[in-house]
């Protein structure tokens, strides 16, 4: 049996590793942007307002103070978030794949079912009594009726199968009958293609 404390230690170690990976990804993304020459300076929080005070010639950068920030930084941010989520997903998957987690999940379900069993029993008996007093069928009775209909459907199908089998019997083997009704129509079978026996071409 796995030790639950070791599982929590593992989780912490994975979380720490994930944080380190995330930080590295941020640094890498920032370096990439800087190396492309898009952001020579760190982002300037006041740059949005500066465009209203600094008017340059047409075609000039609207952010003369800080230089332009390429919108690709948003794509990098999205990639970072994707990686971050993927890292979390992997970490959680490792934790959830442990026997300790499966055991804890099983115990939780067991407790839930124990409570449910008592609650259901109490609800069903009181509902049944209320429906009986109103002269209405209970849930079990409705389900029973539905099952009877399904059984009936099965029996009709079985009879239809037997009739089909009778209709498919060769004339010589069929019992003599005085019934003048036409024979059952045989289901048409295509003659071309589709071998009856499965074939393996290899």
């Amino acid at each position: 049996m796995a030790d639950p404390t070791s599982a929590s230690d593992d989780l912490f170690a994975m979380w720490r590793k994930q944080m380190e990976t995330g930080t590295e990804a941020w640094i890498k993304a920032a370096q990439q942007v800087a190396s492309q020459g898009h952001v020579p300076n760190p982002p300037d929080p006041a740059q949005f307002w500066r465009q209203f005070s600094n008017f340059g010639p047409p075609g000039a950068s609207p952010f003369p103070g800080a230089g332009p920030i390429d919108p690709d930084v948003l794509a990098q941010w999205k990639r970072f978030l994707d990686d971050w989520l993927a890292a979390w997903s992997r970490a959680l998957e490792q934790v959830m794949g442990t026997e300790a987690f499966a055991e804890a999940l099983g115990k939780t379900l067991d407790q839930f079912l124990s409570v449910q069993a008592k609650a259901r029993q109490a609800t069903e008996s009181s509902t049944k009594a209320a429906l009986e007093s109103l002269g209405l069928p209970s849930r079990e009775q409705v389900i029973g009726l539905s099952r009877q209909m399904m059984d009936l459907e099965d029996r009709i199908e079985s009879l239809a199968d037997q009739l089909d089998a009778l209709g498919n019997r060769p004339a010589a083997a069929a019992p003599a009958t005085t019934d003048p009704s036409p024979p059952r129509r045989q289901p048409r079978r295509k003659t071309a293609g589709g071998a009856r026996k499965p074939k393996d071409p290899a």
Partner: peptide, 17 residues
Amino acid sequence: CWLDARYFNVDKLVDTL
């Protein structure tokens, strides 16, 4: 892993629900 017989009691689930 989660449905392992040691931890997951399928009989109890089906019999209850």
